[in-house]
Computed example of a mutant assay.
Amino acid sequence: MPWRRPRRKPRAAPRKSTGGGLLDAVDAESATDPLWFYLNNGAYFTLTEDNYWSLDNAEEWLLESLRTALLNPATQ
């Protein structure tokens, strides 16, 4: 059986009720998967070690990709 991360309540996801500016199709619970994908060590090491990106380029791309995946452009 492949490893699968446990489902749990999100702690880092922005909330609509506090003016977080999430896309209409995204709520705090569904935001956890993109957060997990973009902010895990695998994404970072793939960009920096496997693809030889600089730390600054990897950070900038991951942050911009996460913004695009989750946040309403009007609030960015």
Rank of each mutant, 00 (worst) to 15 (best):
G21V: 10
A58I: 08
A25K: 06
Y52C: 02
T48V: 13
Y44A: 06
P14H: 06
K9S: 15
P2F: 07
P6N: 14
P34F: 00
L39Y: 02
P10C: 07
L66P: 03
P10W: 03
L23W: 02
P34I: 00
L23G: 04
A69N: 03
S17F: 06
L63V: 14
L35D: 01
T68Q: 10
S54V: 02
A69S: 15
D50G: 03
F45H: 11
L66W: 02
D27L: 04
Y38V: 06
R7M: 13
P2V: 13
D27S: 09
L71E: 04
Y44L: 11
D56H: 05
A43T: 15
D56M: 05
L62C: 04
N41V: 05
R7I: 15
T46W: 03
F37Q: 07
Y52M: 00
E49Q: 06
N51F: 08
S65E: 13
Y44R: 09
L47S: 05
F45T: 12
L35I: 15
G20S: 12
R4D: 14
L35G: 04
L71I: 15
A69Y: 01
P34A: 00
T32H: 01
W53R: 06
G42A: 08
T32G: 00
D50N: 04
A28I: 00
P6V: 14
L22H: 02
A74N: 10
S54K: 02
T68P: 00
P14M: 10
D27K: 03
A74P: 00
E49V: 07
W53A: 08
R15I: 01
A74I: 11
T48E: 00
G20C: 12
L22G: 03
P34V: 01
K16Y: 05
G20E: 12
G21S: 11
G19T: 11
A31Y: 01
P10S: 09
W36A: 11
F37V: 10
P2I: 09
Y44M: 10
N40A: 01
R15S: 10
Y44S: 08
L47Y: 04
L23D: 04
W36T: 14
V26Y: 01
E49T: 06
E29Q: 11
D33N: 06
L63H: 08
R5C: 15
S54I: 05
G20L: 12
T68W: 01
W53M: 07
L55G: 03
E59K: 11
L35C: 05
S54E: 04
L39W: 00
Q76D: 11
D24M: 08
G42T: 07
Y44W: 13
N41D: 10
A58Q: 04
L55T: 10
R15W: 05
A58C: 10
L66Y: 00
S65F: 01
N72L: 12
